[in-house]
Design a protein around this nucleic acid. Structure first.
Lengths: 143, 143
DNA sequence: GCATATTGTTTGCGTTTGCAAATATTTCAT
DNA sequence: ATGAAATATTTGCAAACGCAAACAATATGC
């Protein structure tokens, strides 16, 4: 079988990713939250305090970009950045109460997206999809 | 089961997509070709002439961004833009010989990525993954 | 304990991006 | 045939981005 770009895994991933991101971004407009901001809120809500580096890896946002993003999120009182005195080179980022409130408010949108995206699949298929995506992710290391 | 952001379909899609894109971008550096440029080359190589709008939809790049990108690609003699006299509001974009040559040169990278990404899956799993990604893509309309 | 390497974050800077408005052409209704 | 609506592309502009360099703190080897 010949290689067809539009059926390649990178193409399909990008296509789906961009399409979902566009729609999600539009839905977030009412809340004055960008998609990367939402991702930060969602990760912190799920797993608590993280350093900038950890957060960067988890949300797939370049560290320099994230540094600035966290800056504006801190100004908006969505997150705090703390330099612990026992290790003053790291920055610990955490949700403020406002941040948590915002994250909670956005959850219904997220669950609606999740539900809709897989609404034509059965539970087993959904698990298969996610397992395969995780495997693709692992393979990335080998590139 | 509670909603876990880091296991959601949008998160997994984005994570995989960004990771693959980063690596691909690095691999393209030697050729002075950006990832969006590569995508344009690959689509044109696979399916021939397209209008800007069609191309925009196929490569998931915003039209205004693509307009400028095609501009620089034309300057670099990778593509041509033609306004047909029978319909002067569209722009038909096509590969030049240089563009095709470049596209051909990049194909081995693309196939290497494809092969590596799915190298731990069997043929049936690969088809399942792609079918599921296409289904997710379809569901996006319903968001 | 001191210089050096390593780790973690921020900043400078040019490029890319996306939205909205402007522009151009074609289509449609009357 | 003419004006209004629809379609297709480009441009202005401000925000976001990524790389590389700068900066800061901790860890390591001697």
């Amino acid at each position: 079988m010949p290689y067809r770009f539009t059926e390649s895994v990178p193409y399909l991933l990008n296509r789906a990713g961009v399409a979902v991101a566009e729609r999600f971004t539009r839905r977030l407009e009412d809340y004055d939250v960008s998609l990367p901001m939402y991702r930060v809120l969602a990760v912190l809500r799920q797993t608590g305090t993280h350093t900038l580096g950890e957060l960067s890896a988890m949300v797939s946002v370049e560290m320099s970009t994230l540094s600035r993003l966290i800056g504006t999120m801190a100004k908006r009182n969505l997150v705090t950045r703390d330099r612990p005195q026992d290790n003053a080179r790291i920055v610990l980022i955490d949700l403020t109460d406002d941040g948590r409130e915002m994250a909670d408010k956005l959850m219904p949108i997220a669950t609606h997206f999740e539900d809709t995206l897989v609404s034509n699949l059965d539970a087993a298929q959904v698990e298969t999809l996610k397992a395969l995506l995780r495997q693709v992710n692992q393979q990335v290391e080998k590139l």
